[in-house]
Amino acid sequence: MTQLTPAELDHLSNLARLDLSAEEKSRLGQQLPEILDFVDQLQRVKLDSQSPTKRVVELNDLRADEPAQTGLTIEQIAALARPDFHDGQVVVPAVFGEENA
């Protein structure tokens, strides 16, 4: 049985930038080990001689970047996609907290 301590769950949720409520922590603390036990059944698979595989889907050659031909202006996209716009720039919160200012 996989163990996941409260400290490990906190570390994981911090890596994922997910804030969890006490109720979520209690539920996930039980469910995540169950899921990990389920996926651990993989250890039983007999691997063939061609293992390991690094990538299974071959990608086509990369094309050069080009502007998307949506026919929309930045203002129209702003109105539809609804980020905060000011003077043609996307408005975002401060990158650094006050302690870093």
Binding site: L15, A16, L28, L32, V45, T53, V56
Partner: peptide, 30 residues
């Protein structure tokens, strides 16, 4: 969604990548 984000983060984190993600991709190849 939160469950899967956490499982994915776990499987890709240091110390788990080979045991989980790399093994899973190898099994897909098989």
């Amino acid at each position: 969604v939160k469950r899967r984000i956490l499982i994915g983060t776990y499987a890709l984190s240091v110390g788990h990548y080979d045991a989980y993600y790399q093994l899973a991709v190898t099994i897909q190849g098989q």
